[in-house]
Amino acid sequence: MTRTLYLNGAWLPESEAKVSVFDRGFLMADGIYEVTCVLDGKLVDYAGHAARLQRSAQELGMALPLTEAELLEVHREIVARNALDQGLIYLQLTRGVAERDFVYPPAGTPPTLVMFTQAKNVLENAAAEAGIRVALLPDLRWGRRDIKTVQLLYPCMAKMEAKARGADDAWLVEDGFVTEGSAATSHIVTAEGVLVTRDLSHALLPGITRASVLELAAAHGVRVEERAFTPDEARAAREAFITSATNFVVPVVAIDGATVGDGKPGALTRDLRRFYIETRRASAI
């Protein structure tokens, strides 16, 4: 089935959705994006994603062309038009079409807003059952990783290098500490059962799933520490896992070839995935 896309106020078949070659997202990576999970045809953690989109836009001086109510309505409409039961909505906002220049175009230049869906079985995830292996690589991204920009070339390179090393994904390291994964938040559980994840700063993206999982952990009596941790701490951890919008909670069972814990998905990781799915399925809109 051909998908229906949203592009600057119009609903179009994917074959007819076109963006100018002079769009700054194409020429300058001058754009931001969000990915919202869809489960049972409803939006998961939508408020967090909408708020982060607004923050990213403000940080870069971009204007959203839709009000909060209109943005929610478009999300719901694209789900309905594509009969999406499970999967994701990808949204991208760029500064729009202008002559190529390092200087931003004049205020009032219309932005480009595009949205499309991808079907994905988010509940049945083989990686969540078996766990993933990660390789540690240097974090060579730009300094404002708290803004969800379309500058994704280095994360792609890191993921490909990790696969070349026989791993499934990469965890990135800067100044001796893990920042985050190539496209997910990194977490460890210490031998004492403390959930440790990096504190928020310009060094990493404020993950929406991260926030929900930390809230759930605390609600179930798990001690949480938001601080940087080293690769050695990660290797010595009892459990490790990643969080992201469409993967939810996925165990990490090996780091640079060293087994994490007993090499199997840990009990707390499995519980947090279950808690997340149950609560977010119930609260999806």
Rank of each mutant, 00 (worst) to 15 (best):
L5Y: 11
A17Q: 09
V19A: 01
V21T: 04
R24Y: 09
F26K: 04
V44P: 10
A51R: 15
Q54K: 13
L64W: 09
L66Y: 14
E73G: 11
Q86Y: 02
I89Q: 02
L91Q: 11
D101G: 05
Y104V: 05
P110D: 08
P111Q: 03
Q118K: 14
A119Q: 10
K120C: 09
N121L: 11
V122T: 14
R133D: 13
D139A: 13
R145F: 10
Q151A: 14
M157R: 08
M160E: 15
D168F: 12
L172M: 14
D175P: 02
F177G: 05
E180M: 09
E180Q: 14
E180T: 12
A184H: 15
A191T: 12
V194K: 04
R198T: 10
R198F: 06
S201A: 11
S201L: 05
H202E: 14
A203P: 01
L205P: 05
R210L: 06
A211H: 06
A211C: 05
A211E: 13
A217N: 01
A218D: 08
H220C: 00
R235F: 00
R238C: 02
E239V: 06
S244Y: 07
A245V: 02
T246L: 10
V250L: 02
V253S: 01
V260K: 00
G261I: 03
G263D: 02
P265D: 00
A267D: 03
D271M: 08
I277K: 01
R281I: 01
